[in-house]
Each structure stands twice: as C-alpha cells, then as structure tokens.
Amino acid sequence: MNTLTIFRREVEQYFTTPFAWLIAAAVLLLTGLLFNQNLSQAARGATIVDPAFIPSVFSFALVFFAPLLTMRLLAEERREGTMELLLTSPVDEGSIVLGKFLGAWFYFTLLLALTLVYQIILLSISQPDIGHSLCAYIGIWLYGGATLAVGTLFSALTENQIVSAFLSMIALMLLWLGDSVGQVIANLEVARFVRTLTLQGHYSTSFAAGLFRGEDVAFYAGIIVVLLFLTMRLVASNRWR
C-alpha cells in the first residue's frame, strides 16, 4: 500500500518534469539513429538486422542512462529533507526503497516499450525473428532493472545527485565491461568467473543470442534483491546513527 503510494508519486514525478521527457527523447533519438543506420545497411545487403539490435544498444546506453534516472531517487529526498518526513511516517524503509525503484523501473519499461516501434517497422518490411527479439527484450528489461538497482544504491549513499550519478556510472561501467574482461585477464577460468559477475556476462551471450536461461534471470533478480536490501538498510541506518 505504502509502496504503491510512493511508486505513484515517483511515476508522477517522471511524467510531470521535463527532465524525464528529455531523457526519453534523447534515448529515442539515439536508438532511432542507430536503427536507421543498421536498417539502411541491411537494405543494401551489407549486413542483416540483428534481432537483438535495439536491446543491445540499451545494454551500453544504460550505463549512462540508468544513473540519470536514479540519481535523484533518494539523494533528492535527503537533500530536500523529505527523507526525514518519510522516515517519521508510519512507513517501513523497504516500502520507500521498493516504491522508488519500481517507479524508475516502470519508467524504463515504458521507454523500452516505445522502442518496440522499431520491431513493428521491421515486421512490416521483413520477417524478423520475433522470438529472438522478445528474448533480448526480456533480457534487457531485467538488465535494466539491475542497473537501476545499482543506481538506487548509490543514490542512497550520498545526498549529492551528481556524485551519486558519477559513482553509479563508474560502477555500471565496470559491470558492463564483462565482454572485454578476457582482454584484461589472461587466465581463462578467472576471466570466465569474473565475467559471470558482470551484467554483460548474463546478457550478450544468452538473451542477446535468443537463449533464455534461468540462471541469468536469477542473476539479475539476485542483483536487484541484494542491492535493494542493502539500500533499504542504508536508508534505515539514518535511524541508527
């Protein structure tokens, strides 16, 4: 109930401030440009349209985009002092964190849904592999949830939004680098283990390839649960300092 109240306020906030709309426009412009480039190449027969193309663009874009969505979640509450009011209301910290996270995830979901336009376009001019695309979309949706959870955690760590965004970008960049980990770590088994801890490691060779694996879902869900739990404890720690 409280989660829902906070969730609704978050979503309202996204839709009533120009900031979120600008982000949405920027994301649409970016994906649109890349999609057109890809499409015209494919039309000339140079390449094929990868069914996971748009989701894979997101897999990188989220490194910068998720922190922008989440940086204000808790940092702003602390700066504006509303956190004090939230914590003195009969609301548990879990509802606060969950409501805010779900709000951000919901916004991301809508944005992702907007890019389905590209799939509809593809469908009208070709016979794309819909199952494969769907799989990649499911993957990037979970992936997005995990990146937003990272951003939420950093938003709770500091009341400065810029610092929060910067820190989560660094963290996400490290988590994103999964596919290049082999370039850095010579030992294959170590590289492989490190890769399983990264976000890309559970997307680029499974969801993006059209393979839905239970363990990848568990990974992203696990990241979300653990990070939100930590965030919740962090928010609650105000009470215990």
Partner: peptide
C-alpha cells in the same frame, strides 16, 4: 533451465 527463443532453434 533454458528456453530457446530463436526462430531457427539455434539452441
């Protein structure tokens, strides 16, 4: 626990 979602059943 996997589900092959590709059209040509690659996996």
């Amino acid at each position: 626990v996997t589900l092959d979602m590709t059209q040509n059943q690659r996996f």
